[in-house]
Structures are given as structure tokens and as C-alpha cells.
């Protein structure tokens, strides 16, 4: 269980706030999507959880333990982190990239190697890729490695910051669906920041909408899809439905000819 309690963060010494007074509770094994415009504070919120950003006020607790009492590197070894930039280490092979966190923790070498092989299959990449360098892989393949690397040390929390944002639509869809299966199978708790409402609707158990550093809506996809008091949230959530209707109309028009 992740608890964000009254967290505020200002990057300019209190002039303006990226997030202000945010409260959020994410029970274990939930898949939460955080959506909102750019600058709404969703990435800042995500990064306060693994201490890539330290809040000015409030605190974040994981299973009741404040994260500020754990050394940042130790905390991050327990939390998977995937982001749009991927950030594979270009001087390390795919195998070395995947095995990095277990090795930092000090797992025995045979166990690390077994885990690397298990993960490359889990993210559906050929084993032969293990000896390659990141530069030799496509964007989608690289993000599969990014996910494998985040999962390597068996974290139960995954933080994902627009993980599929830079991928082409087909890869994006496939990878999203596959990740959702991994989430189930490995009993993960996932927080995913995305600006794609459709992706959020299709993947998440729960959607959090942010605007100007605050949470303006929080609910299951079907609740939010069926209307909300805030007009902007309504417009936002209507978009997937409108798009789907337009697509259906197009298909039927053609079929009628």
C-alpha cells in the first residue's frame, strides 16, 4: 500500500507549486493511471514515491513506512522504475542492463543469470539479444528491456512514467497489453503516468486526473466514463468514447455502401 499524504513540491522556493497538498492511497495490486495535461504535476507526484524528488511538505509511506527514512538507493532497488527515455546503459550489454539491480543488491551470480534469462523470455525477446548492446535494438525492444530491468530485483511496486509514449501505436498497444498481464501475474502495484486517456482506460483499474498540481478526479474507468461533475474532466473522459463512436460510424458508412 502506497500512501501519499498532503505532499507539496515547489521548485522555486515557494513561488509556485508543481503539486500542492496531494493525497493518494494506492492499495496493493492495484493498477493506477495518472492522467492530466503536461505541467499538471503527474510526473512530480510519481517521483516523490521513489525519492527522485523530495517533497517540501507532507510524506509518502510504503506499507506504513515513511520513504524518507530509507536511503534513496535502497528504496529504489525495491521499486521498479520505467520512463519514456528508457535510459538503458549504452556501454553494457542487454544482459548486464537487466542484471544491474540484482547485482547492486549482491545476489549470487548464478541466481542473477537465471533471473536475466527468465526476464528476457517474460518480455518476449529472443535470448540471442542478451549479448547485444542497446544501440542494436529498436525502440520497442529497448523498452521491453527497460521493463525487464525494472522487474529484475522482484519489486512489487512499479512506477511508470509515460513508458510507451515514444513508441509507434502498434508496439504501444501490444506492450501495454503484455504489461497488464505481467502486472496480474506478478501481483504488482503499478502507478503509470500517461497522457493517453484511451491507454489509461484500457489498462488501469483506477484513473486519477490531475490539473494544476492537484487531483481533480479519482475513480474506476467506468465511473469516470459515465460522467463527472467537473466539466473539464467530463470532456477529457468523453474523448475515448467520441473517438470510438467516430470510428464505428466510419466503418458502418463503408459497410453500407
Amino acid at each position: 500500500m502506497i500512501a501519499v499524504e498532503n505532499v507539496s513540491k515547489s521548485f522555486d522556493g515557494g513561488g509556485s507549486f508543481a503539486i500542492r497538498g496531494v493525497n493518494l492511497r494506492v492499495p496493493a495490486r492495484t493498477f493506477v493511471a495518472i492522467v492530466g495535461d503536461s505541467g499538471s504535476g503527474k510526473t512530480t507526484l510519481l517521483k516523490t514515491i521513489n525519492r527522485l524528488i523530495e517533497p517540501n511538505e507532507g510524506e509518502v509511506l510504503i506499507d506504513g513506512e515513511p520513504v524518507c527514512t530509507v536511503a534513496p538507493h535502497a528504496l529504489r532497488r525495491r521499486i521498479g522504475y520505467v520512463f519514456q527515455g528508457i535510459g538503458l546503459f549504452p556501454h553494457m550489454s542487454i544482459a548486464e542492463n537487466i542484471g544491474i539491480t540484482p547485482r547492486l543488491i549482491g545476489w549470487p551470480e548464478p541466481q542473477v543469470r537465471a533471473r536475466i534469462e527468465e526476464l528476457i523470455e517474460l518480455v518476449a525477446l529472443p535470448r540471442a539479444y542478451l549479448t547485444r548492446l542497446p544501440a542494436e535494438l529498436s525502440g520497442g525492444q529497448r523498452q521491453r528491456v527497460g521493463i525487464a530491468r525494472a522487474l529484475a530485483a522482484r519489486p512489487y511496486i512499479m512506477l511508470m512514467d509515460e513508458p510507451f509514449g515514444a513508441l509507434d501505436p502498434l508496439t504501444r498497444d501490444a506492450l501495454g497489453t503484455e504489461y497488464r498481464r505481467l502486472h496480474e501475474r506478478m501481483r504488482l502495484t503499478t502507478l503509470m503516468v500517461t497522457h493517453d486517456i484511451l491507454e489509461a482506460v484500457l489498462l488501469a483499474d483506477r484513473i486519477v486526473v490531475m490539473r494544476a498540481g492537484a487531483i481533480v478526479a479519482d475513480g474506476e474507468p467506468h465511473e469516470l466514463l459515465s460522467g463527472h461533475s467537473d466539466p473539464e474532466v467530463r470532456t477529457l473522459m468523453d474523448m475515448p468514447r467520441r473517438q470510438a463512436e467516430r470510428v464505428r460510424a466510419l466503418v458502418e458508412e463503408r459497410g453500407g455502401e
Partner: peptide, 8 residues
């Protein structure tokens, strides 16, 4: 960011 993210 990745280096920090993986817990270095």
C-alpha cells in the same frame, strides 16, 4: 536518471 532509478 536510469542510474539513480535502478538504485545506484
Amino acid at each position: 536518471q536510469a542510474a539513480s532509478g535502478v538504485g545506484m
